[in-house]
Design a protein around this nucleic acid. Structure first.
Lengths: 342, 342
DNA sequence: TCTCGTTCTGGGAGCGCTCCCAGAATTCAG
DNA sequence: CTGAATTCTGGGAGCGCTCCCAGAACGAGA
C-alpha cells in the first residue's frame, strides 16, 4: 500500500493500519458491532480521531443500499411557499428532528406539473431512503405518482388526491374553524361570514365545513355568507368587499388564513367599519410575524407545525426501521389565540 | 450473470446487456462522452428509458469523488430563521438555481455554537462539493472554522468575521438606508430617528451608517436619534417608545427591518401620533407578506434575494468547475418601495 | 492491396466500504 | 488436560460506477 499523501482524506484502511488491526475490525469498531475487544475498539477509535477520519458516505451507501438522507418535498406553487412562514417553520423543524437521528435532509420544491417527473426520477433514483411530502392540492399528481414507488412516504396534511392507505399527519382544521366561529358567537355576533381558501385544498374545505358546523349547531343559516379567496391578502380584500356588499349587516368574519384576514381588515376599514367594534375578525394559522403585528392584533387559530413535523419524522423513522406501521392519518389539535380583533 | 428480478433497480450492466453493448459503451452514451457511434448511443438511451434506469449516485460519486450536492447553511438563531420570509425566499431560490444545474441541495441550520462542530464534521465528510453560507454575525465561529476546510464556499451577505479572501454576495445596505432617509428628508422632515438591528450584524451597522450619512450630508445632527433593536417587532416597539420619550419632536423614523417598523408603528400610535401625518416611517427588506399588509402600507427598502442567490450559485459553480475566481464581495443594489407610511 | 490514422468498443482495475466466512484465540465445563 | 462453545480477527468478495488501455473496425491515401 503506497503511503497516503497528507492532503488526501484517510480511508478505513488507513485507520486500520494506524491502529494495527484489520479493515474489518476497524469497521466493526466504528459501527460498534458486536465481537470487538475493548482493546481493539479503543485503538481504532483513537486512530480515527487522530487521523481525522470520517467515513466515505458514498462507499458506505453503495453497499448498505441506504443513503442516510430523507427528502422533504414541498409541492406548492412558488408564491405560496415564499409567503408562508409555515413552510420555514416546517423546514427548520424537519431539519432539527432529522439531524437528531443522524439523517440528512434534502429539500425539494415542486412548483408546477412540469417539476413532477424530475422529482419522481430523483426520488426513485435511490438518493434518499424516504420522503416527507407536503402536497395539499386536490389535483396534485404527485401523490399518485408516489404510490407507484416503493419509497416510504409520510404526508404533511391530508394529501389532496387522498386515497386510503397513506401515512399522514394533519391538523384538525374543522375543529379549529368551529373554535373560531364559536368565539365570535360567544361575543354576541350572529351574522358571521367566512372567506375561504382555494377549495381544492383539503385544509380550506375543512375550515369551511367547520364554519358551517358552528353556525348550524347554533341554529343560524350560513347561506350567502361564504366567499372564496385563495389564501392571499389581495384575495381576502376582494372577498370581503363582496361580502360587505352582499350582507351589509354582518358583524363577524372567519378568514381561513391570516393574510386573507389582513386583506379583509382593509376592506372593512375601507367600508368605514370598525374592528372589533362593528365587525369581529378571526384568522387561521397564527403566523407569528403577521398576526401579532396587525392593527389591531389578530385573533387567530393556532397550530404547531413543529409538532406536526415531529410526528411525521417519527413515523418515517419507524417505517425505515422496518416496523409495520398501519397507514393512517394522525390529526393534531389546534387552539384559539385570542387577541384584539375579536 | 443471474437475471435480475423485476423489483430490483436496473444497473448500468443491465442497460448495456439490453442494448447489446458493453458497460463502457453504455456509460459513455449516458454521460455523452466522445467516441460513441450514433447507433450505440440510441440503443443505450432507448434501453435506459425502457428499463427505467437511473444511475446509482453512490457508485458514481465513489469513483468521481463528486457528490453532485451542495449545502446551504443558515447560521442564525432559530427565531430569526423562523420569522424571516427572506430565508424562505433564499432557500427556494437556491433550490431553483441549483437544480437547474443538476445539483442537489442539502439544507443545514446552525442554531447555536454547539451546532458548529457537527456542521464542520459533516461538511468535511465529503458529502457535498461546496457550500452556500449565510452567517451574518460578527462573532460567528463558522466562517473561521470553514477557512480550514478545503471546500469551496460562497457567503450570502458580508460574513461577520470577515477576513479578506472570501467569496461573498451582499446587498448595498448602506445605500439603501441613505435612500430611505433622503426620501424622508425630501418630504420636509428634519428630525429623523433610526431603530437599528443588532450591531454585531454587518447589515445592521451598514444601515446605521447609511442613516448617518444622509443626515450628515444634509447638515443635520444625528446625536441621540438612534436606538438599538434586534430586528424583531417587540424590540422595535421598545426602541420607538424610548425615542419618542427622548425626542418628542421627531417626525421621521428609519427602521432597519420591517418587523421593527411594525413595532415602531404601534409605539407611535400608542403615543397618539398619526402615520404618516405626524411621523413618517420607512422599513427595510420589503417583506412581501408584511410591508404591504400593514396599516398604513409600509414604505420599505426593497432587495431581491433571488438575485443574490443567483450570483452565489453562479460563483460556486465556477469554483467547482475549477475556474480561478478572485475572492471578492459582490454588492447588489437596492431600491425604495414607496407606499403610504412615508 | 496494404498501411496508417481515426473512431469506436469491451474488459479490467479500483473507488471505500460492509458483510460473509473460515479460522485463531480465549473461555469454560467436565 | 481435553474438547467444545464462545469471542474475536482478517481476508475475500462485491456493491455499481468511471476511467484507462489495448485492440477492433473503419475509413482515406499510397
Amino acid at each position: 500500500m503506497p503511503p497516503r499523501s497528507q492532503d488526501e482524506r484517510p480511508t478505513l484502511e488507513d485507520v486500520a493500519a494506524y491502529a494495527g488491526v484489520s479493515r474489518s475490525t476497524a469497521s466493526r469498531a466504528l459501527n460498534d458491532d458486536a465481537y470487538v475487544s475493548t482493546r481493539s475498539r479503543e485503538k481504532v477509535l483513537g486512530a480515527a480521531r487522530e487521523l481525522g477520519y470520517s467515513p466515505n458516505q458514498a462507499a458506505r451507501s453503495l453497499v448498505t443500499r441506504r443513503t442516510g438522507a430523507v427528502a422533504v418535498v414541498l409541492s406548492e406553487p412558488e408564491s405560496k411557499v415564499l409567503d408562508d412562514p409555515y413552510f420555514a417553520t416546517v423546514m427548520h423543524g424537519a431539519y432539527r428532528e432529522l439531524s437528531a437521528t443522524g439523517v440528512q435532509m434534502l429539500l425539494m420544491f415542486v412548483d408546477s406539473r412540469e417539476d413532477v417527473p424530475r422529482t419522481i426520477r430523483f426520488l426513485e433514483g435511490g438518493h434518499v431512503d424516504g420522503a416527507l411530502v407536503f402536497a395539499p392540492h386536490q389535483g396534485d399528481p404527485l401523490p399518485t405518482a408516489l404510490r407507484l414507488l416503493r419509497l416510504p412516504v409520510v404526508y404533511g396534511g391530508r394529501p389532496g388526491s387522498a386515497r386510503r392507505g397513506v401515512h399522514a399527519v394533519d391538523f384538525d382544521n374543522r375543529a379549529g374553524a368551529r373554535l373560531a366561529v364559536r368565539h365570535l358567537l360567544s361575543t354576541g355576533r350572529r351574522r358571521i361570514a367566512t372567506v375561504t381558501g382555494m377549495l381544492d385544498h383539503p385544509a380550506a374545505s375543512d375550515r369551511l365545513a367547520g364554519w358551517q358546523d358552528a353556525l348550524v349547531e347554533f341554529g343560524l343559516d350560513p347561506t350567502g355568507l361564504s366567499e372564496a379567496g385563495d389564501f392571499t391578502m389581495p384575495s381576502g380584500e376582494r372577498a370581503m368587499t363582496a361580502l360587505l356588499e352582499r350582507a351589509p349587516d354582518l358583524d363577524g368574519v372567519f378568514a381561513a388564513s391570516d393574510p386573507m384576514a389582513a386583506g379583509a381588515m382593509r376592506a372593512i376599514r375601507a367600508a368605514g367599519r370598525r374592528i372589533p367594534d362593528d365587525i369581529g375578525i378571526i384568522g387561521f394559522d397564527d403566523q407569528p410575524t403577521l398576526a401579532p403585528a396587525m392593527n389591531p392584533p389578530l385573533t387567530s387559530v393556532h397550530q404547531d407545525p413543529r409538532e406536526q413535523i415531529r410526528h411525521m419524522v417519527r413515523t418515517l423513522m419507524a417505517l425505515l426501521a422496518g416496523e409495520q406501521v398501519r397507514p393512517d392519518t394522525t390529526v393534531l389539535p389546534v387552539t384559539l389565540e385570542v387577541r384584539d380583533s375579536a
